[in-house]
Design a protein around this nucleic acid. Structure first.
Lengths: 261, 261
DNA sequence: CCCGCAAACACGTATGTACGAGTTGAGGAG
DNA sequence: CTCCTCAACTCGTACATACGTGTTTGCGGG
């Protein structure tokens, strides 16, 4: 790696050696000396350059990996993470005019972007709701709900998991309780059943993924997830569905429009 | 820590030892055997329990810290992270009626929650905009903008930094270019200047914090940040302000209302 | 009884060693 | 020329050791 010149350590600094090294590499990435996809010098090369032990180098590399700046590939090296192009989720994605065109939001958006959407792991159960879900739906935790779990993929890559909860009173023996919820998705079905949707409330959190989520969404180290809790309300103010969605934060930008009124 | 019983290692598993140990502790946290704020057994105790080297224990603990589940406190121990009560940002926070009451959104919300809001590090400059900002404002990168940086604190704890950009053409020699932007904040001033605000578009990303952000927001390890880019549009569709906000993701839940239309 | 200080304890940083396992490319066999 | 093997390189895991620095606690002297 003669191409990349890293500074030497500052012997008087009280900053830990592994942090100084992480700083040097981070600077190189931010400067563009190490562009996306570039290979970071190997552990052995960095040991030689700085004259420190391997553990020190590994500590430094782990800092960068935790920041989501690099990924290590076993047997190949450490590389600057290249971020996939992000998808922007519009705030009108649940507008009725989209439903009336017969496609669920995810399918329509993805095809629009020229990619191939798919959905797998669809699982439908009638269960007692988690307490938080019962609260959002304003029902008793003893009332059963239909839960619809699924995973969304773009060009075969998993990008999002979601679980919807609908009171069983509403959804039982309807197409909502079928794996294929029909044209326009479950929101179209709810409206056919006479539940006129008025608005959704979407609560957005960000956090580090759980272990399962890392596996299911094939997340790189150092990538947080969005967790969205979306509740659908009818014009009467009745909550009829809660959807709990987890998505990789580096595949998405969420876009919302706020009225200035 | 006789209170907490951790399983033994599975000698036939091909899962790395440090991951198994991390799994055990994670399970204990999720089960509630290690409640919020509880002290995780010390490195020495875990070494003894599992009969492994300290580095192995430290690797395990680092996994959990990276997941945001624990924090290590030098000289004291490792503790289960307790999440502070979250603040919920309503989607009508920029409604005109709030501006007319003379308080900026942040101040009003925080006082409402019974906490003491403050703002520091206010810095106002006239600069050339970053290219991305110029694009959002639909101006040339050569046109100057007023940038207003500030940091928001709740009860003295920093929770959010923000930088607003307003075309200098609009804001020069107005109160917008003063540290104290007056009652109702800069949006009230813009409306007084004849820019009737119609709506905002807020783009939400989540990512791991940069080094500076960790320092400025006093972020715990394993806590991602939200980055919000909010653009204010007038009724004529003219973008008049862009605000780039970074906030700790564990102090906030963002809440948006979406029309079903 | 209280204060102060030292020991015990805890995590942080760093060195050195060893072996395992995935990837790659060069060189030799066919 | 092609294919295969193997060596070299790379990161992953784990052990042992040492010393630094911040925190807590308990003992002993005043």
């Amino acid at each position: 790696m003669a191409e990349l010149s890293l500074p030497d350590l500052d012997p008087v600094s009280d900053r830990a050696v592994f942090r100084q090294i992480a700083d040097h590499i981070r600077d190189a990435i931010e400067r563009g000396s190490l562009p996306e996809g570039a290979k970071v010098p190997s552990e052995a090369q960095l040991m030689q350059h700085y004259g420190v032990a391997r553990m020190t180098i590994r500590n430094a590399l782990q800092v960068l990996q935790g920041e989501g700046l690099t990924v290590a590939e076993h047997g190949r090296g450490v590389f600057v993470r290249s971020r996939p192009p992000v998808r922007r989720l519009a705030s009108d994605r649940f507008a009725r005019r989209h439903r009336e065109q017969g496609k669920a939001a995810f399918i329509a958006e993805t095809e629009e972007a020229g990619a191939k959407p798919s959905v797998d792991s669809i699982e439908i159960k009638e269960v007692r709701p988690p307490v938080a879900v019962a609260e959002w739906l304003s029902i008793s935790p003893d009332e059963l709900v239909i839960s619809r779990s699924r995973r969304y993929l773009i060009d075969g890559q998993p990008v999002e998991t979601a679980v919807s909860y609908i009171p069983a009173e509403i959804a039982r023996n309807t197409q909502i309780a079928e794996p294929n919820s029909g044209p326009g998705g479950i929101y179209a079905r709810l409206e056919e059943l006479g539940y006129r949707l008025d608005h959704f409330v979407e609560d957005v959190k960000a956090r580090m993924p759980l272990r399962d989520e890392v596996r299911t969404l094939k997340l790189a180290p150092g990538v947080p997830v969005f967790q969205l809790i979306r509740t659908a309300y009818t014009v009467e103010g009745l909550p009829v569905e809660v959807c709990d969605t987890v998505m990789s934060s580096d595949a998405y930008v969420l876009s919302y429009e706020l009225p200035a009124r």
